[in-house]
């Protein structure tokens, strides 16, 4: 996988994350689940920032960043806190894999950023209930 292809794949994942977190944010109850709402808000902001940075990195390579889809299929079970957490955990786990892939497929400044993004994402995801792993971002 070329460096740009890896960044594009990660961007596609971040587009998905931003969309889904937008939905999750609309589903969570801010009165009865304030902590979960804050966590979802924080993760949404983190993914927006990483999506934007990925767009810049891809532009810097002279490529056109992948556009977001107009819609994504939504998970079931978003009416409960457990369902929201499960969906968020799935998002985070997939993104960790994409950042791990980006680390292995890039070099220089792109890799440096991918490493920092993987580190940040690996600790942020703990708040939503993703269990700590021996090798975040790797399939072992």
């Amino acid at each position: 996988m070329t460096p740009v292809a890896a960044l594009q794949a990660t961007l596609v994942g971040e587009h998905t994350a931003v969309y889904l977190y937008g939905v999750l944010g609309g589903q969570v109850s801010r009165s009865t689940q304030p902590a979960l709402a804050r966590t979802i808000d924080d993760l949404y902001e983190a993914h927006v920032a990483r999506r934007n940075r990925l767009t810049e990195l891809i532009h810097a390579h002279g490529s056109d960043p992948e556009a977001a889809s107009s819609a994504y299929r939504l998970p079931n079970g978003l009416t409960s806190a457990a369902g929201l957490r499960a969906a968020a955990a799935q998002i985070e786990s997939r993104c960790l894999q994409l950042y791990g892939q980006a680390v292995g497929s890039t070099s220089g400044a792109d890799r440096a950023w991918a490493i920092s993004a993987l580190l940040a994402a690996s600790t942020q995801c703990l708040a939503i209930g993703v269990p700590a792993s021996d090798y975040p971002g790797m399939t072992v």
Binding site: G13, T16, Y19, R73, C95, L98, T139, V140
Partner: peptide, 23 residues
């Protein structure tokens, strides 16, 4: 649960993701 995350599936499946052997 996995089927809704099409964006991730596409991104990951296109990657020929490296898998280090366990040993």
């Amino acid at each position: 649960m996995n089927q809704y995350l099409n964006g991730y599936d596409a991104a990951v499946s296109a990657s020929n993701e490296p898998r280090l052997p366990r040993r």
